[in-house]
Design a protein around this nucleic acid. Sequence first.
DNA 1: GCTTGACCTTCCTATGATGGGAAGCTTGAT
DNA 2: ATCAAGCTTCCCATCATAGGAAGGTCAAGC
Lengths: 157, 157
Amino acid sequence: MNIGQAAKASGVSAKMIRHYEAIGLIPQAGRSFSNYRTYNERDVHTLRFIRQARSLGFSIKSIETLLDLWRDQHRASAEVKAIALAHIAELETRICELQAMRDALRYLAEHCQGDERPDCPILDGLAEAQEVDWCQGGHDEHCAKVSGGLGLETATK
Amino acid sequence: MNIGQAAKASGVSAKMIRHYEAIGLIPQAGRSFSNYRTYNERDVHTLRFIRQARSLGFSIKSIETLLDLWRDQHRASAEVKAIALAHIAELETRICELQAMRDALRYLAEHCQGDERPDCPILDGLAEAQEVDWCQGGHDEHCAKVSGGLGLETATK
DNA sequence: GCTTGACCTTCCTATGATGGGAAGCTTGAT
DNA sequence: ATCAAGCTTCCCATCATAGGAAGGTCAAGC
């Protein structure tokens, strides 16, 4: 199987397959006598694994570890679970950060008329953030600590 | 005021101030006779505006526009609001993507014993995604369409 | 005056994952 | 033989940020 077929079969672009090989995430592919990379079903299986992990937001670094564990018949599932839980925690953090941004911005937008006049609480908010009291508190269990670290000096009065 | 003081006063690193100047986001700073960049309170104000906007996740491109509007006494607030609303929508999209990842991963992790044995639904899920039925439906108003595009062929049976 | 340390300058490099494209070789079909 | 599609390598771009090297400048203390 050539790289194009492997790409189609795995859902990973040929470009990325070469890249994963270059950075050592996957072993160097075999070569045909005309120097084309060759792949088999196992390789495609690995590539699908990588694609799935990427689609769940795992970094290449984490995927390297997951691949090792995947190939190790004697791994402890606890190791895998720990990686997964750590990644879930990271996702939570990023979600909360984005939610805090969204909420702060929504708060500003709600107070903006959005007409032809120049008065604009959004611009004022960006300019004078220190004196505005944004989002009146976290909206989610996980997010309390995150929203404070936004660079918005929340004067939660 | 030198760049270091401007950095401290604005919360934008000296490195980034130079960068913003290089890409034309802010005008070229004046220079002292010894070729040091000099800043005044207005410049610091602008830098704070930029920092605030970045902390809300606006791209440099958007901030360029926002800065122009900020400086334009005759802008229509509708223009600003449109940019803000578009950005809120982007944030929503990214939030939903991350939530979909988290939920799929949480689903896998819940079924993993996490002990010393090698059986691992997480690895199995990554390897055999096509045949697993992940997260049994969206959990949020906005997210219905997003979770499908995750690369997880959800067999919502 | 001279040294020292903190600050400034420019220029180069890296990050992480991905895509675009050029120049040239191979393959397979007409 | 020719042509298109596919492969090869190599270089560059993204986006916002940070690190570092090599060298100039400034202020304080001796």
